[in-house]
């Protein structure tokens, strides 16, 4: 059998996603802390390897933005993605809310300095923090919505360095291809 997940370190059987699902329903969105808290105390090696693979694959979120950011994570492993370190090299935290900015937000970090994408909050201080509603982030990253317009219309809230924010353009994101 192939690796369970892209980027997975161990060839493992299917991780018990149902369990994650159930836990998530109780405790909210899963993140790495959840997995550590949930599995590490049990010293369950099989599960732990599953966690590692799980962590390396999806951002564990049902948001559209998470799907896009997963693509971003993959993109940062490519030659073109690695160029972003020189071109941009900034750390962005992106707070995505399902319906309304500020409510039930999930944080993601696009770290173009270290070429990483992970669930937030950021490990250091991000250069800029954005807040979006789910679909709006996808629109901005897909070039459908101009970031300036999004900001002016209040669809995008910015904290942090304005010059960093201005480098947050659709160009840095990979475009989703369609099946």
């Amino acid at each position: 059998m192939l690796n369970v997940f892209s980027g997975c370190l161990f060839p493992t059987p299917v991780p018990p996603i149902e369990e994650f699902d159930r836990y998530r329903e109780r405790k909210g969105p899963a993140d790495r802390h959840f997995f550590q808290a949930f599995y590490w105390p049990r010293r369950d090696l099989e599960r732990c390897s599953a966690i590692i693979s799980f962590m390396s694959y999806p951002l564990g979120s049902k948001l559209q933005s998470a799907a896009l950011l997963d693509m971003m994570r993959g993109h940062l492993t490519t030659e073109e993605g690695k160029k972003l370190k020189q071109k941009n090299g900034l750390v962005y935290q992106i707070n995505v809310a399902p319906k309304k900015i500020g409510f039930e937000e999930e944080s993601f970090v696009v770290d173009l300095k270290n070429l990483k994408v992970y669930k937030g909050p950021a490990e250091g201080k991000p250069d800029a923090t954005f807040s979006f509603v789910d679909g709006d982030f996808v629109s901005v990253a897909g070039g459908k919505l101009n970031p300036q317009f999004a900001f002016m219309r209040g669809k995008m809230k910015i904290k942090g360095s304005m010059s960093a924010a201005q480098k947050f353009t659709p160009e840095i994101f990979p475009k989703p291809s369609k099946l």
Partner: peptide
Amino acid sequence: WNKLGATQANSARSADA
């Protein structure tokens, strides 16, 4: 074929796609 290509592209394997 297109679905395969799109999946490859979305997983950062654009050359294959």
